[in-house]
Nucleic acid binder design. Structure first.
Lengths: 345, 345
DNA sequence: GTGAAAGCGCTAACAT
DNA sequence: ATGTTAGCGCTTTCAC
């Protein structure tokens, strides 16, 4: 039975009184700021421990920092994003900073709401993962609070970026399939209408990388792209369409693992075996791909590394807001599993 | 090129000046509080729009509320939790409240850190999903800020709870399998050592429900429980052990979908077909279960409904902190798919 | 190196 | 119905 009225919180004043020093002194110790002798620090630290004091972030934020980093994920369901998050929290673990996430948001409106909410709550910095908002909005956000944009290409002078080389990833896929003997390799992409996004978004880069790689392998004639969405139904629908082709592809490069799930379902329904009749490749190397019954060949983006870099860049910008913006591009790797093999036809 | 120095934020004082009223008046309009005439409201609203004013949550929190609800999820990777989150955000969508999540945390220490961080940031209320912390900690948290505990049984007078009836869920599974003709039904549970948790946690309730249901069907002799963990390797390991039994079970009830993934892998490795040789059932009806190549029979907890109820209870408690605590228990349903069938033996 | 005092943006209590 | 005033808990001048 806890008391119905919550006991008044311990404040910096309580600590100062208990340690027989000024609140200024306590504040300095809290922030490891200059101007407190070792004895002073020790005295204050002891008082803090004895009283169980924890500073109120909201109050700190009114004058200084809140020591809070906001992370916006587009879709909490995509098993790739937790990797990035792990990288971020790992880097921030030993700092005073705390990570808070926005609820999964899809669409510009939801993104705007979440970024605004984070700014209004005094977050010291933001990490935006694969945002779909127009650049103008991203730059506006970044002008108000230090921001790192993850998983979206395209440079800006106001925010840092960390992205994986999606063109290289697509090339890995095509190279792998060509190496197995495939020529008729189709791709299922996420439809992109916005002209800016069709350059900056990972899905667009993957489709572009696919086309380029096909050409480099002299397979210009075999290029076959179906536009749906990065979702299971999107994959299902795309696969259905590919099965109606006169010259059916022998391999399908799905733009994301979840797309590959729909592809596998469509193939199973049609009585086709994988990789016997067709090979299938995904992207992101999510936990889905690793599941025994699925065992999907996929491209690994090293999400943890992406997250670590994002957190590092954010800390650097927090330390110096005038520094030039940085773009980091990481290289993906291919993880071959049982969904790919030599073509039979 | 945004200005290097972020422009000073619009404050309530700016709005008051622009609307030619007092800051109090603006504050009242913001909070829909009593004591502002319709004309006043209109005037203030216009000024707010014209200046693009948004209140700073941190500053509001210093005196009143922050309009922020913190949600703690144990594991962002578990595809069941996003459902709950959706339910929460859906209920809060049309209110002034904003949801922020803690980073996925496992273990008491991580949970304590996240709950403390949320309290320190002035969150108005918390939703704790399947916390593993001792009750004392939960009650301590709840004594400081209105709290709803989700997915954990056991009542408390200081916090509300919303949980699914896991005993009933286990009974659904056993009933389904018995109906198909199975008798040798084994269960893979998540090992629980803590005495409190072995009563309050869903995994413990599922194991208990399994035992009770088996007895009710007169299958006392067939009760067979393997203790591992709710994870893919846990399922794999558990399945391996079950395959060594002299009298091999004809059906396996995995305590969670992710466990079933490991089970399916182990069976595939052993050259056994599902449901030809063995039937498999999961729990949570996650997106995994619905995947075509998996098609796992599972128990659906109606996570969205759980989330909605949690948000509702939190709002009610925010409105009246003295009200008696409420316990809500929802009923699960069984979703039959292709991983279960009649036994062959 | 230390502390007194002002003030961040907002709300609550109290006038009027 | 409206405005005046005093803080919330902390950081930041700026004295000493």
């Amino acid at each position: 039975m806890a008391p119905p009225k919550p006991p008044r919180r311990v404040t910096i004043v309580d600590v100062a009184r208990h340690a027989q020093v000024s609140t200024t002194a306590v504040s300095k110790v809290l922030r490891n700021a200059y101007g407190a002798s070792p004895e002073m620090r020790a005295k204050v630290r002891r008082a803090i421990d004895e009283l169980g004091y924890r500073p109120l972030a909201a109050a700190r934020g009114l004058r200084g920092q809140t020591y809070t980093i906001g992370v916006m994920l587009p879709d909490i369901r995509n098993p790739f994003f937790p990797e990035i998050l792990d990288g971020i929290t790992a880097h921030l673990e030993d700092t005073d900073y705390q990570v808070l996430l926005g609820p999964g948001c899809n669409g510009e409106k939801a993104e705007a709401r979440v970024t605004e909410a984070m700014i209004d709550r005094g977050m010291d910095g933001l990490v935006l993962v694969a945002p779909v908002s127009p650049r103008a909005h991203l730059e506006h956000v970044a002008s108000l609070v230090p921001t790192v944009v993850v998983g979206r290409h395209g440079h800006s002078s106001v925010y840092d970026t960390v992205a994986d080389d999606d063109v290289a990833g697509a090339a890995l896929v095509v190279g792998h399939l060509v190496g197995l003997g495939h020529r008729r390799i189709a791709h299922i992409e996420h439809r992109e209408t916005d002209p800016i996004r069709s350059v900056e978004m990972p899905n667009a880069q993957r489709a572009d990388g696919y086309r380029r790689a096909m050409r480099e392998h002299g397979l210009d004639e075999e290029i076959d792209v179906v536009s749906t969405t990065y979702s299971q139904p999107g994959g299902y629908e795309g696969a259905k369409e590919l099965l109606t082709r006169a010259r059916r592809p022998t391999a399908v490069f799905a733009g994301a693992d979840i797309v590959a799930m729909g592809v596998l379902e469509a193939f199973a329904e049609a009585g086709l075996t994988v990789p016997g009749d067709l090979s299938v490749v995904g992207y992101d190397n999510t936990t889905l791909a690793a599941l025994g019954p699925i065992s999907l060949t996929s491209v690994d983006q090293a999400g943890k590394e992406i997250g670590r870099n994002a957190a590092r860049l954010l800390m650097e910008r927090l330390a110096d807001r005038q520094k030039a913006s940085v773009q980091i591009r990481l290289s993906p790797t291919l993880v071959a599993r049982r969904s790919t093999g030599a073509p039979t036809a």
